[in-house]
């Protein structure tokens, strides 16, 4: 019998997840340990759970997997710059840095392409990305104004986001971002010495002291506008496996919304995350979870925010993201790729928005639309499948050569973060 549950102990609680219906329960030690037995289904403790209405669902969601195949476009990542004013040691975009920026004309064609491909969808999203998008500021502002005008004409509502290293932020750009961008992602790795070890300026000096005051100004002034969402987004590497201290360092600088992600680079690099790091990183997530449970500072860690009562809809839970299907990336020369991580990989080029007759490669679109949890052998019986959605296709392609083959590091860390998120919600609920 395939176990319909996942159980773990954290924060002093015995936690039981009913995989197929999303139920989360705190049980006593006797029930918890009875479920370890090979014949757990014959135990009185299991019968008690059944009587309580737990485990009343099968995994019968596969019918929803095909409802989002060849979906209309919803979101676009605009690589407005393939140039950067930092030289970060781990940057995955380094291989596509060509010192080019997207022209406003190409960006406007991309917006037209998104509107045309969105069919009946009303809500569309454009993300300004790079390289460093502030190096193409004229393109950013012209694109926002154009998208708003075209959106009004075609009955579409645009939501704009931007990711920046902050180096070029000034009063004018900060005000515009806070006025127009629903969310802004600000890149910072945590403690000064950690940030400056890999996030260096072109002159080899660290960037921390330049960008921190600019980020603080942006976030402080953002409170006065209609948009409040932002993320301080960092990367941890093999150099700082004590990254909970980096989350704390960011929180202590007064920032509320924090995300720090494991680096994804070749394992040949000295700061790569490797399989042997998994136990150490898991214990660090535990430490961060303990810090969070005592956290009265009003800050949050992205991966530990689980909405157990609502959460994403079933269509979203079956996929890690919409890349290549309802989400695409466009590079400065107008080439279309499944997402920003695939940008520049010629075999995954889906078309070009400058060529009127260039159709989107439907074979690629269909391929990505079918990379759901039922297509990935490793995901089908994984307890975390409805929280993870099958993970990041680009990461699996880069490390395993196949979008449908999740990597061990990704899976182990994803499952640990999910446990921490659930455990924190349980702790909060039980008081």
């Amino acid at each position: 019998m395939v176990k319909p549950f996942h159980k773990f102990k954290q924060g002093g609680n015995y936690i039981l997840l009913d995989i197929n219906n999303g139920g989360v329960h705190a049980v006593d030690g006797q029930i918890y340990h009875a479920l370890d037995r090979d014949d757990f289904a014959a135990s009185p403790e299991y019968a008690e759970l059944i009587d309580a209405g737990i485990f009343d669902s099968e995994d019968d969601y596969a019918e929803y997997a095909d409802m989002n195949v060849n979906a209309p476009l919803k979101a676009m990542c605009l690589h407005v710059s393939h140039d950067c004013n930092l030289k970060c040691g781990y940057c995955f975009a380094e291989s596509i840095i060509e010192h080019t920026v997207m022209s406003p004309e190409t960006a406007k064609k991309a917006i037209d392409f998104l509107i045309r491909g969105s069919a009946g969808r009303e809500h569309l999203e454009a993300d300004f990305f790079g390289g460093e998008p502030l190096l193409a500021w004229e393109t950013v502002t012209q694109t926002v104004e154009y998208a708003k005008a075209q959106g009004a004409k075609h009955g579409k509502k645009f939501r704009f986001t931007i990711t920046t290293n902050g180096l070029l932020l000034d009063d004018e750009k900060t005000a515009y971002i806070n006025e127009e961008m629903s969310n802004v992602v600000l890149s910072l790795d945590g403690r000064r010495e950690v940030n400056d070890r890999l996030r260096k300026c072109k002159n080899g000096k660290g960037s921390y002291d330049i960008i921190l005051p600019k980020f603080r100004e942006l976030v402080d002034s953002r409170k006065k506008t209609g948009f409040t969402d932002y993320f301080i987004r960092g990367t941890f590497t093999g150099y700082n496996l004590d990254f909970a201290d980096d989350v704390l360092a960011i929180a202590n600088e007064g920032f509320r919304y924090i995300s720090i992600e494991p680096v994804t680079v070749s394992t040949e690099l000295p700061f790569a995350i490797k399989k042997e790091h998994i136990p150490r990183i898991k214990s660090e997530y535990d430490r961060l979870s303990d810090i969070m449970s005592d956290n009265n500072g009003g800050w949050s860690f992205f991966h530990f925010c689980a909405d157990l009562e609502h959460g994403p809809c079933i269509l979203k839970r079956l996929r890690g993201c919409g890349a290549g299907n309802e989400y695409i990336a466009v590079t400065p020369d107008g080439n279309i790729f499944p997402c920003h991580r695939y940008a520049g990989i010629d075999e995954w080029k889906m078309g070009n928005i400058n060529i009127e007759a260039s159709p989107v490669n439907k074979t690629i679109k269909e391929y990505f639309s079918k990379t759901h949890i039922y297509a990935k052998e490793k995901c089908r019986e994984c307890w975390a499948r409805f929280y993870c959605g099958g993970g990041c296709n680009a990461e699996f392609f880069i490390f395993e050569g196949d979008a449908n083959k999740p990597s061990e590091v990704f899976c182990e860390l994803m499952k640990k973060r999910t446990e921490c998120a659930i455990a924190l919600a349980v702790r909060k609920a039980l008081g």
């Binding site: 197929n20 329960h25 049980v27 008690e48 309580a52 009562e309 839970r317």
Partner: peptide, 23 residues
Amino acid sequence: MKTTEKTTRIKTICGSSLRDSVS
């Protein structure tokens, strides 16, 4: 979040968010 005590040994933190819905 409101918890429900199914029995003295089982406290439900959330019931069936996945069913209800039917990164």
